[in-house]
């Protein structure tokens, strides 16, 4: 007996890695790290297996929202150099497959996180996925230059969810961890938009650089960096902070402010002359900035656990 009657012919057979790439592994690494910090520094400790499951399902939820984003944004990803090689726009994975994986993993991750930890954590993960896939991807990204500002909230949720997974409630420390990422996202992406010049124009994405011009973007980077600076310092002064977090917060924010000020002072002629050296350096530094802040929280946590402070 043979039941094999359907065979879809396609030029390229997607690999497991192609499907995994739908989950945006690089974004997931940041999600895992920040969620882990949120979970560890919380005053309630989970059993290691529960903690592992919580981080795993938060990461899968983030990956699922990435797959939904790739499904919906395949048209604009295809025209941007930075994203043209993603699985859907490059034709390696069918859009329908990305949608199915995104929806399926969203459901699994939310239910499993709620079962492994608590309902509030599961609800927050569901809210994050909907926020990123629907509010940001389907609505704001293509309609307002504030897309990055509001969409950044989705990326800011993981440490808060990690905290809630451990404690079952939201507190000021969790909100401040959220606020650090939320306020950090706009300058980070606007710096990228400054030197990935034609990409967003070509795709018709209303980035601030496209709608309000590059000078306005430089102003916004400075303004948001000024607003961001006190948040990590405040976080360092709460129960999860400590001397390491405080030193890192003061030093890195001073550095970040100087970078934003340099960007603000420059114009397009200067930027073109040195091929956006300052903007690229600011963007690169912004990546270390986030890792360093959350890493510092971990160091302070370890120092407290070891009885050093």
């Amino acid at each position: 007996m043979s039941d094999i009657s359907v065979s879809v012919t396609r030029d390229y057979e997607p690999t497991f890695g192609d499907y995994f790439a739908l989950l945006k592994p690089r974004v997931m690494s940041l999600v895992v790290f920040t969620a882990l910090v949120g979970l560890l520094v919380a005053p309630v400790s989970l059993h290691p297996v529960e903690a592992f499951a919580a981080i795993l399902f938060i990461a899968i939820g983030a990956g699922a929202s990435g797959a939904l984003n790739m499904w919906y944004d395949a048209d604009i990803d295809a025209v941007m150099r930075r994203t043209a090689k993603r699985p859907v726009p490059s034709g390696r994975v069918e859009p329908g497959e990305a949608l199915a994986i995104g929806v399926g993993l969203s459901g699994i991750s939310v239910v499993m996180l709620a079962l492994a930890t608590n309902l509030l954590a599961g609800f927050l993960l569901a809210f994050t996925i909907v926020f990123y896939a629907v509010v940001y991807t389907m609505w704001l990204k293509r309609s307002t230059p504030q897309n990055i500002v509001i969409g950044g909230a989705a990326g800011a949720f993981p440490p808060l969810i990690g905290w809630v997974a451990a404690t079952g409630s939201i507190s000021v420390e969790a909100v401040l961890m959220f606020a650090v990422i939320f306020m950090w996202t706009p300058p980070h992406f606007w710096a990228l938009a400054l030197f990935m010049r034609s990409d967003y124009d070509d795709a018709g994405v209303p980035m601030l650089t496209v709608t309000h011009g590059r000078k306005a973007t430089r102003n916004h980077i400075l303004a948001y960096t000024v607003l961001l600076a006190p948040v990590p310092v405040w976080l360092a002064l709460t129960s999860v902070g400590g001397p390491v977090t405080l030193v890192v917060a003061v030093a890195l924010n001073a550095w970040f402010l100087v970078g934003a000020y340099k960007i603000w002072r420059r114009d397009e002629v200067m930027a073109e002359e040195d091929n956006f050296k300052v903007e690229k350096a600011f963007f690169r530094f912004s990546l270390y900035y986030l890792f360093a802040h959350f890493g510092a929280l971990l160091v302070d946590y370890a120092l407290k656990a070891g009885g050093v402070i």
Partner: peptide
Amino acid sequence: LKATHGLHHRRFSRNVG
């Protein structure tokens, strides 16, 4: 069954994953 050999071979790593 020989007709499906190529398909099985190409999908092997994915199925293992």
